[in-house]
């Protein structure tokens, strides 16, 4: 997979209003083109980690950062978000707060416009993202009339117009219904498949995570306590449950059988479970 796109070394972070460290000596490498999914209970520091990688702490959100964080060789804690255009893009949880204009076209043009790019370049980037994510039918619509999932899709597209090399997703489906979730997850899978972006996502939908993630990192109290391929991480059902992460349904069922001394391998995907039960 080549050299790491994101390097985090011994990272300690706390907000200006918090007494204790939120991240406590966290280290992590993410390779180019890799998709890493962060999992863990609320408050374990997933969002905080993404905000530091995006250069938002301490540049937008006041706080203290100790340790090393670099993205594509750039030291983000020294440079801040403003120097990371074209390097890191981030999408947040709340779709209502992320779509802030009155037309989808304007929303998509916002980032390249704010970067002061020439008009032709702005237009070409809007067209590129509309083609890439099949958004032409939305272009003339008022975002206020879109569903939560569609708004989140527009938010992702808006960030993509700066052509980031690393895409960060902070629980992008946590405020969406089933339909909206499917829409967003499908687009993220497509981005990984077709565009080879490095993606770090905080996401709690395990069934989706096992299908698309290259690696899963389980976080607990500001540290990464478990990291590896989905198969390795989710087959350790007892351990991940201890850290507040629910394993995939099929793994849970098989794990119950194993407790009753039925020795079968723990599957993490449905198709693997089918194979297991054929035995």
């Amino acid at each position: 997979m080549g050299s790491p796109a994101v390097v985090v070394k011994d990272l300690y972070v706390k907000y200006a209003v918090s007494v204790e460290w939120i991240l406590k000596g966290l280290s992590l490498n993410v390779n180019r083109g890799e998709m890493l999914i962060l999992m863990g209970p609320s408050g374990c520091g997933k969002s905080t980690l993404l905000y530091v990688i995006a250069g938002l702490i301490p540049w937008v959100v006041p706080g203290e950062v100790d340790g090393e964080v670099s993205v594509e060789g750039l030291n983000v804690t020294d440079l801040g978000y403003s120097k990371l255009a074209g390097v890191v893009g981030i999408v947040y949880q709340n779709p209502e707060m992320q779509v802030i204009t009155r037309s989808v076209k304007e929303e998509l043009a916002m980032v390249p416009e704010n970067l002061g790019l020439p008009k032709d370049e702005v237009v070409s980037r809007v067209e590129w993202v509309a083609d890439a994510l099949d958004l032409h039918r939305y272009l003339d619509r008022d975002p206020q009339s879109l569903s939560g999932g569609e708004k989140q899709l527009i938010a992702i597209a808006s960030v993509l117009t700066m052509k980031p090399r690393v895409l960060l997703l902070d629980e992008p489906t946590s405020m969406l219904d089933h339909k909206g979730t499917s829409l967003v997850l499908e687009v993220v899978s497509q981005l990984k498949r077709e565009h080879g972006l490095t993606i770090i996502a905080a996401e709690h939908r395990v069934e989706w995570a096992v299908e698309v993630a290259d690696r899963i990192a389980v976080m607990h109290e500001g540290r990464i306590v478990l990291i590896g391929e989905p198969q390795d991480v989710f087959s350790r059902v007892d351990e991940i449950e201890k850290y507040g992460v629910r394993p995939p349904g099929v793994s849970e069922v098989v794990y119950c059988l194993r407790r009753k001394s039925i020795e079968i391998p723990v599957p993490v995907r449905l198709k693997e479970a089918v194979e297991v039960f054929r035995l």
């Binding site: 981030i90 947040y92 707060m97 002061g116």
Partner: peptide, 19 residues
């Protein structure tokens, strides 16, 4: 939430182009 969105949209960093 809004200030982080504005930051990640690079609001106010350069002279804006009006396409």
């Amino acid at each position: 939430d809004l200030s982080m969105v504005l930051a990640s949209r690079f609001v106010g960093l350069a002279k804006r182009t009006y396409v």
